[in-house]
């Protein structure tokens, strides 16, 4: 018998004994306690909560009233930070590409090359208000995972139309393409491993900036 068969046989033997408290072994479907699956709040309230969470995380956010404002905002922010080279996913819209910086399209760049580029500019799959999370799934305008991992700076464009209230709403949407590589980030990387002193920025981008577009949004697509 293979290890697989032995393990399965052992497990089947183990679970053949019923629970002692007389509870049914398998609760009937739909019987889960009713936790919230949607945030009961208005659109502006959800936006406010998201922005508040990002500020809690010390993320620099700029709220823009239309997509047309992205280039100007990105250009100014990059100039302020002194960043002159960014890697971008090949499908990044022309309407987001800042002026005055070198933009390197990711055409299967090797890791060493990516590592030497100081920043990345991408979109997102969605964002979660309750937790202040931004989620990337490798879909449109996001690029592959290494692109937003190796550079030390990440500028991310998020649309109000991509914002959901709670984690379950996000999982519903992500569940349409569960096989995509998914990354949630909620605040900067951090450690408290040395004497419980919180140090922000361990691995990955140490600075995350968000351009949050409230106005007319790009069409939602998953």
């Amino acid at each position: 018998m293979s290890s697989r068969d032995i393990m399965l046989a052992t497990i089947r033997h183990a679970i053949s004994r019923p629970a002692p408290d007389g509870l049914p072994a398998v609760p009937p479907p739909g019987d889960l306690p009713a936790y919230r699956r949607r945030l009961d709040a208005t659109g502006p309230e959800i936006v406010d909560r998201f922005l508040e969470r990002l500020r809690d995380y010390n993320v620099h956010v700029e709220v823009l009233d239309s997509e047309a404002a992205v280039i100007a905002a990105a250009t100014a922010r990059l100039a302020a930070l002194g960043l002159d080279r960014l890697v971008i996913p090949a499908d990044l819209p022309a309407a987001w590409r800042p002026a005055g910086v070198t933009l390197v399209e990711d055409q299967a760049l090797d890791h060493q090359t990516l590592n030497a580029i100081p920043g990345a500019l991408t979109g997102a799959a969605l964002a979660i208000a309750e937790t202040g999370s931004i989620v990337l799934d490798g879909g449109r305008h996001q690029g592959r995972r290494a692109l937003t991992l190796l550079p030390d700076y990440h500028l991310c464009v998020v649309f109000a139309g991509q914002l959901v209230g709670l984690v379950p709403e996000a999982m519903d949407q992500l569940g349409r393409h569960p096989a995509r590589p998914i990354t949630f980030f909620s605040g900067p990387s951090a450690t408290a491993d040395i004497e419980l002193d919180r140090v922000v920025g361990v691995h990955g981008p140490r600075t995350l900036d968000v351009l949050f577009v409230t106005g007319p949004t790009q069409p939602r697509e998953f």
Binding site: R53, A108, I128, E130, T131, G132, S133, G138, R144, R145, A146, V167, L174, P178, A179, R180, P181, I182, T183, F184, F185, S186, G187, P188, S189, A190, G204
Partner: peptide, 19 residues
Amino acid sequence: GERMNPYTSIWTGTVPGDG
């Protein structure tokens, strides 16, 4: 005690060109 931990990764098998 965080509302969400800083990073969560979810992956499924292998994806060509990513990971």
